[in-house]
């Protein structure tokens, strides 16, 4: 498995696990906006720590692959995956605008935008994995 496919798996699973926890807490609506802001910061820091730590472990296990720059196929996969993420971000931006026009609070607009970034990240990781496995 290519190093960049492994990092896509790490990102996908960490996103599902860590940010999934945040949004499940949000869905249960226990706590006020200040508490959710603190939880949001905590989950973001946890995600970065987990992602970096697991990526370092994978890089230590296959240092040659980790050092190699992305080749033409990997760059193409990255570009195609980012295009999918762009569609997700565009859709989420419209959802955020609609939330603002509908008079939702800043708290909910912020969460719509955060969800947008998370979904875009998931879409990018998933597309990367599909393209690595099925072909470009």
């Amino acid at each position: 498995m290519a190093f960049r496919e492994k990092t896509a798996w790490i990102s996908l699973l960490a996103t599902l696990g860590i940010y999934g926890f945040y949004f499940s807490a949000l869905a249960s609506a226990r706590g006020n906006s200040a508490e959710f802001f603190a939880l949001l910061i905590e989950t973001m820091i946890t995600f970065v720590v987990v992602f970096v730590a697991l990526t370092i472990v994978v890089a230590i296990l296959s240092p040659k692959d980790a050092d190699a720059p992305a080749d033409e196929r990997e760059k193409l996969i990255g570009l195609k995956a980012e295009r999918v993420a762009y569609y997700a971000v565009s859709t989420g931006a419209v959802a955020g605008m609609l939330a603002a026009f509908c008079g939702l609070s800043g708290f909910w607009i912020a969460n719509v935008l955060f969800l947008t970034l998370v979904v875009a990240g998931l879409a990018k990781d998933a597309m990367c994995i599909v393209l690595y496995r099925a072909g470009v």
């Binding site: 498995m1 290519a2 496919e5 692959d65 190699a68 080749d71 033409e72 196929r73 990997e74 690595y132 099925a134 072909g135 470009v136």
Partner: peptide, 19 residues
């Protein structure tokens, strides 16, 4: 040729057409 081993494998399997 300056690519990864996985890319050579993908080319051989017809999963990627090289530049």
């Amino acid at each position: 040729i300056g690519v990864t081993r996985q890319t050579v494998n993908a080319i051989e399997q017809g999963k990627y057409s090289p530049s």
